[in-house]
Design a protein around this nucleic acid. Structure first.
Lengths: 207, 207
DNA sequence: GCCGCCTTGGTACCCCGGTACTACGACCGC
DNA sequence: GCGGTCGTAGTACCGGGGTACCAAGGCGGC
């Protein structure tokens, strides 16, 4: 009703499940498909993927819940042109439809926060800037700490590290704690990821 | 002038270079800092990084050019709360400032398109990991298990995995336990290493 | 000499992660 | 229909990991 009330927008069709949505999108070739992530039968992500893959010029705008969960990211991979929350303000919904129709993309502000956070996680600065943040954080580790981090990156637990370095386990814990603080990791798992991303350890050379 | 014309917004100060921006942000503690990416002396990214790192509650909204270049991504990594284009419509600029002030984030539609595309690139569609040796152990994982392993490889703990996949934490633990058994890992740290070695997760930097 | 950093080590405490079960509904192949 | 797998979820338990402290010896710089 909201969409129909707009002179420049028209509802071409509706569907209450994914398979039907794919069929109707193919038949009607709408400029924009408003897709609910959760639907009976084929879910919205798979439907989005197929609509995009079909090669038509329909763009898919996903309606999601308050949080950006894995379904949302899956929809992103599938080629969605944006995300809006289901309880969005009418004007925001209409605005989003027009933006997507124009070929741009839109993300609800509440979701953008999370999107950016996660995006930042995936793109450490050192990737493109040569002397980025992580390299600096690697530099601020002491020699011993780098050794311990390398050991962590090889999958050793604190006991093993203590044994192989002839240290007390409490000492290892002290080092680990400082390493986590310095590189900004929450636990040793994230420390391993850091070690890989900085090149301190590389795939397939752990003995 | 535009900002000052709004009853709920006030310009606390201005700066024409990065170092000055950092100083003034520290002194004035504004809710929102409008940051130009390119500035003489210290650039906007470094200034953004320092303002965020200072621990104040100032949020940084970056004004960038038409395309999201590497500077923009670096700003994102530095903790920026959003991006607007320099020639944005006045109402969009004001709207963006209010959104950021409210704790959310905003990205100009023209930039969102590129952001989403690049984000999607970072998450390859499942099934294209073709790698030698350990790949068969990857094969014996179920679809769900591979998803969970990928999440582990991103550094998420069980609680986060449960949230983002909408599962009970006990279910996540069940999956994790089975993954460890299948790939021959003792704990999630070794599972992360496995994920990197098989290419399920890749270092996203430095080639 | 004194200060700061690195390394080592300790104690106490809490929580998350991993294990060991059990269980049930959905789905698929035979 | 029936057995197998998969995904979901639960309980109970315990050990390792992480945190918050403190402390001492070595070593280099000012």
């Amino acid at each position: 009703m909201l969409v129909e009330s707009q002179p420049d927008l028209t509802v071409l069709g509706e569907a209450d499940n994914g398979a039907d949505a794919v069929r109707r999108a193919a038949d009607l070739a709408p400029d924009v498909v408003l897709m609910d992530v959760r639907m009976p039968g084929m879910d919205g992500i798979e439907a989005t993927r197929r609509i995009i893959a079909s090669g038509g010029r329909s763009r898919v705008l996903v309606l999601t819940t308050f949080d950006l969960d894995e379904y949302a990211y899956a929809a992103l991979r599938a080629g969605a042109s944006g995300f809006l929350v289901k309880d969005a303000q009418p004007e925001d919904l209409l605005s989003g439809i027009r933006v997507v129709a124009a070929g741009d993309a839109v993300v609800a502000p509440k979701l953008t926060r999370r999107l950016l956070d996660r995006f930042a996680d995936q793109f450490p600065v050192e990737g493109e800037t040569e002397n980025g943040q992580s390299a600096e954080r690697l530099e601020m580790l002491t020699e011993r700490e780098r050794e311990v981090l390398t050991a962590i990156g090889r999958g050793w637990n604190n006991t093993e590290i203590a044994e192989r370095f002839h240290l007390a386990e409490s000492t290892v814990k002290t080092h680990v704690g400082r390493i986590l603080a310095k590189v900004g990791a929450r636990d040793r798992v994230q420390a391993v990821i850091f070690a890989y991303n900085t090149g301190l350890v590389s795939p397939d050379n752990h003995g």
